[in-house]
């Protein structure tokens, strides 16, 4: 434990470097794009009035040397100034901040579904390896692996909203009702089911396959044979010895996958009109509002970096050996 702060410090430093690299990446993208950067930022669908262009030129210092421009841009981002959305007449940071809770709720729920369902199914498949239950779980995992996220969403809408009329397919709350307290929560929960399941199913398949594979790998190791040899009941061997050790790679992988989950939420939020930053990105895409799009890229990257840091911390606490890694 004594070396833990050093380990975390190194990781935190690395995260800062990654975030800086992303800012530079954003900056280079604006300049690599064809045409005048101010023109690119203003968008191509006609809103490029001279006043706004002037404002953009000032903001990015476009008349100065490139390296100085980078410095101006970096300073802005460090002050959480992610630019201004001319279309919505609001700062990009404010726009994203308003939408963030909805996305966190959706991705958090989807993650919970994916990890609990995936580990359960994976463990079940590994326990019954070679039987029909194993085959069914493997096939389902393979199928979800091959299905586009947005299409799963649409099919769920078709089944549960259009056909069965059980669940709402649109938005986060019912706009017709002005609810408060518990009723509001219930309404949000009802609206959350389909998007969260859609986003969660794909990762559920990923975690199920991974859990199954690592459990089969761990089951071959000596300490498991020892446990069996000394007469530990089979269920306990699987739970306490195999599953516990198989979970570590799953956690690491989940940490790495966080970025994909956030990316997937753009598709899911678009399908279900869920008012999060994914939907914001889609709206920005339609309006060619690149400042907002870059802001979303920056924020999602920061979210992923923070999540990775959290995974590292968790991992270091669970398994002291990882410090060396």
């Amino acid at each position: 434990m004594s070396r833990l702060p050093g380990f975390l410090l190194r990781r935190a430093l690395k995260s800062v470097v990654v975030i800086l690299a992303i800012v530079v990446c954003n900056f280079l993208l604006i300049h690599a794009a064809p045409g005048d950067p101010a023109m690119v930022m203003a968008g191509q669908s006609g809103s490029a009035d001279p006043q706004y262009m002037e404002q953009l030129r000032r903001q990015f210092g476009l008349d100065r040397p490139l390296i100085e421009q980078l410095w101006i841009y970096l300073k802005g981002v460090l002050h959480l100034d992610l630019g201004f959305s001319h279309r919505q007449q609001v700062g990009v940071a404010q726009l994203i901040l308003d939408r963030l809770p909805a996305t966190l709720l959706l991705t958090g729920m989807a993650f919970a579904i994916a990890i609990s369902g995936g580990v359960t199914l994976g463990a079940l498949a590994a326990r019954r390896v070679g039987t029909w239950a194993d085959s069914v779980i493997t096939v389902i995992a393979l199928a979800f692996y091959a299905t586009p996220l947005f299409w799963v969403g649409l099919m769920l809408v078709l089944l549960f909203s259009v056909h069965l009329e059980w669940l709402p397919s649109f938005g986060m709350t019912d706009p017709g009702l002005n609810q408060e307290g518990f009723a509001l929560w219930l309404d949000v929960a009802k609206h959350l089911v389909l998007p969260a399941v859609t986003l969660g199913l794909f990762y559920l398949a990923v975690y199920a396959r991974l859990t199954r594979a690592t459990m089969l790998e761990v089951a071959d190791q000596d300490f498991v044979k020892t446990a069996r040899a000394k007469g530990v009941p089979e269920g306990r061997v699987l739970r306490a010895h195999v599953l516990r050790n198989a979970l570590l790679p799953v956690i690491t992988f989940a940490g790495i996958q966080a970025g994909q989950l956030v990316g997937g939420s753009i598709l899911v939020e678009t399908v279900f009109a869920w008012p999060g930053i994914g939907r914001l990105a889609f709206e920005a895409l339609l309006a060619r509002d690149y400042q907002v799009l870059m802001g979303v890229f920056f924020i999602t990257s920061v979210m992923v970096v923070l999540f990775n840091l959290l995974t590292d911390l968790l991992y270091a606490l669970i398994d002291p050996r990882v410090e060396m890694a």
Partner: peptide, 12 residues
């Protein structure tokens, strides 16, 4: 591998 690849693809 860290940056959200789908968001980057959209941006590009």
């Amino acid at each position: 591998q860290t940056i959200p690849s789908f968001v980057l693809a959209i941006l590009l």
